[in-house]
Amino acid sequence: MLLPIFAAGLNVTWLLLPLIITVSLVYNATRYELPEKILRRSLRMGVYIFAFMGGSMVILYLFS
């Protein structure tokens, strides 16, 4: 089995983190050409997504 040992005991929520990073980087790379601009906008987008997802999780947790 290829599944790494660390992943077996991992909270799957953390698996969203690499997706946030790659999605924000690739999306902004399709918007701009300058590396600095891409990285800056990606960071901002990543923080927004993370905050939105985190906020949603907190709200769902409070209602659960």
Binding site: T22, V23, V26, A29, T30, R31, Y32, E33, L34, E36
Partner: peptide, 18 residues
């Protein structure tokens, strides 16, 4: 994501150089 990258290869960045 590669679909977006393919479009970037064909058409260039959507919002310009930056």
């Amino acid at each position: 994501l590669n679909l977006l990258a393919m479009w970037d290869a064909y058409e260039g960045p959507a919002y310009g150089y930056g």
